[in-house]
């Protein structure tokens, strides 16, 4: 009753549609360039791991992954840490300008990165953070903090307010209540918010590329540069692409049981 006719066929077709381009990338990453260019083969006939070996042994390649992970992790930690108290405030209290503030935050989530690329470049050069993971992590805060506040506010609202009151009557100070009681209660919400922060920071390229030069260059920027300089090394490009998919796939696997609730941003 609650599904539709032919649902198996529909969902199977859609999953194939999603997986086929990814399969093609994986397929190419195990091929030699000669095989890629000269023949059309549905699976690698002379499988090789040379493309992956090159990435793992060349520092200019694998450092890109480390740089990317650095700013993603810094950004996620900052976003969650500052968003938690704010989410509590928005969920529990009414204060001067709260609605306007919330809208202003939300509007920053929607601001196009292209607008901020150049001003950020000036700003972070001026304060000496240019070409460090901190610059990218702080820049990504502009869209991740509002999102984290938005998600966490939904989760905090679903905690009954009697719990706060009981804790305060029991003599809990505010910080102690926050860490000992509230945070464990919305642990899944924090997981979901962290997942989203990780996701949007990991997939963003324009700001990450603009704010780094050599030291902190993210993998996505290294991919575009090296490949065009070396002619088209399709196999290497594909291998690098496959390796950028893996951290995301791991994160999804860990949060798979929360995905449904998480995508509703704690608001269903």
């Amino acid at each position: 009753m609650n599904t539709i006719p032919g649902r198996r066929l529909i969902i199977s077709l859609f999953l194939v549609f999603l997986l086929l381009p990814i399969y093609w990338l994986v397929n190419m990453s195990f091929k030699t360039n000669t095989e890629i260019v000269s023949t059309m083969t549905l699976w690698p006939h002379q499988p090789t791991i040379a493309n992956y070996m090159r990435i793992f042994t060349d520092e200019s390649w694998y450092s890109g992954y480390i740089n990317s992970l650095k700013y993603v992790v810094i950004n996620t930690v900052i976003s969650i840490a500052v968003a938690l108290p704010a989410a509590y405030a928005f969920a529990r209290y009414r204060f001067l300008g709260d609605k306007h503030l919330f809208f202003w935050l939300l509007s920053n989530r929607m601001a196009p990165a292209a607008v901020y690329a150049l001003p950020f470049f000036n700003l972070y050069s001026a304060i000496g953070l240019f070409d460090t993971p901190w610059a990218v992590a702080l820049a990504h805060c502009i869209f991740n903090i509002p999102l984290a506040v938005w998600i966490l506010e939904g989760f905090v609202s679903s905690v009954p307010r009697e719990i706060d009151e009981t804790a305060f009557l029991d003599g809990y100070s505010f910080p102690r209540f926050f860490i000992k009681i509230l945070v464990p209660l919305i642990a899944s919400g924090i997981g979901v918010a962290a997942f989203f922060c990780f996701m949007f920071s990991w997939v963003e390229l324009l700001l990450a590329r603009t704010l780094t030069a050599t030291e902190a260059k993210p993998i996505s920027a290294i991919m575009t540069r090296t490949v065009s300089a070396a002619g088209m090394d399709w196999g290497l490009l594909a291998a690098a692409g496959v390796l950028t998919i893996i951290p995301g796939a791991l994160v999804i696997w860990f949060v798979r049981n929360y995905i449904a609730r998480g995508f509703a941003l704690g608001r269903v």
Partner: peptide
């Protein structure tokens, strides 16, 4: 899965 792939990839 597609949501977590970097946009340039």
């Amino acid at each position: 899965l597609p949501l977590l792939i970097p946009w340039n990839v």
